[in-house]
């Protein structure tokens, strides 16, 4: 799924500026408010959905080579976080859905846990 399609499915608002990154394909997603849980599973996880708002969310995504972070329940990241994300070419969005609903929408639209090659 392209990030652009994910954005549409979640009716999300783009907060970073580089729209060309929306063309990136993502194969897998992860949803958690605990960053070490996110860091425990490396498998082509392109997207992080979270309700946690601090700079460590962006650093965690960057450590994992993730390309997109979605803040659920309309949580608003700080300017500093958006700047950090832009330095790492990470797309940041916010969506009004709750985590459970956002994950459900992505999952039923085909963003299921599988790698690039399967």
């Amino acid at each position: 799924m392209k990030i652009a399609q994910l954005k549409e499915l979640l009716d999300a608002e783009l907060l970073t500026h580089d729209e060309s990154l929306l063309d990136h394909e993502v194969y897998n997603a992860c949803c958690s408010d605990m960053m070490s849980d996110v860091l425990a599973f490396v498998k082509d996880q392109g997207v992080l959905l979270t309700g946690l708002v601090n700079a460590q969310v962006i650093r965690t995504a960057s450590m994992m080579d993730m390309v997109c972070v979605v803040f659920v329940r309309n949580k608003m990241p700080t300017e500093e976080m958006i700047r950090l994300a832009e330095e790492c070419d990470i797309v940041v969005m916010k969506a009004h859905y709750r985590a459970y609903e956002a994950c459900g929408k992505l999952y039923t639209s085909g963003l299921v846990a599988r790698g690039k090659n399967s």
Partner: peptide
Amino acid sequence: SLGFGAGMGLPN
């Protein structure tokens, strides 16, 4: 509340 304390850091 800052997103840490899952007890996964050292195992990771």
